[in-house]
Design a protein around this nucleic acid. Structure first.
Length: 111
DNA sequence: AGGTTGACTCACC
DNA sequence: TGGTGAGCCAACC
């Protein structure tokens, strides 16, 4: 598989961080959405990798990014607490209700 | 260089 | 709703 050039990687990660930083408190979005907004549709897995690399050094709310099913990050014990601290409750199975808390990127344009 | 892996997603059942 | 399997794409090893 073709590998991204260094310039692309830098651009991609920068875009991802900007987008994640724009997610309002109390809202969440999915890796796929971030990938599309960043201009790299289909790069969900790269978004996850970029966020993993960023945490916890960069000051971005990467806990507001979930899978499209509302599943949290595996192995990140603090994740549920970070969400609940922002008013995002978890369902009984540990998922987030994406229908209620998903962030509509259009809100960003109205600001 | 080539198979494996994963902070993903979609389609089915 | 919830679990599974196949498709994805670059990083890893």
């Amino acid at each position: 598989m073709a590998r991204m050039s260094d310039a692309e990687k830098r651009e991609f990660r920068k875009a991802v961080y900007e987008i994640v930083a724009a997610i309002p408190v109390g809202k969440v979005t999915s890796y796929g959405v971030v990938a599309v907004l960043a201009g790299y549709p289909g790069y969900q897995r790269m978004v996850g990798r970029a966020l993993r690399d960023a945490y916890p050094a960069l000051d971005i709310p990467c806990h507001r990014v979930l899978t499209c099913q509302g599943r949290l990050v595996p192995g990140w014990s603090e994740h549920p607490d970070l969400l609940k601290a922002e008013g995002i409750p978890l369902k009984s199975n540990g998922y987030v209700d994406m229908n209620v808390y998903s962030w509509d990127p259009l809100e960003m344009l109205e600001l």
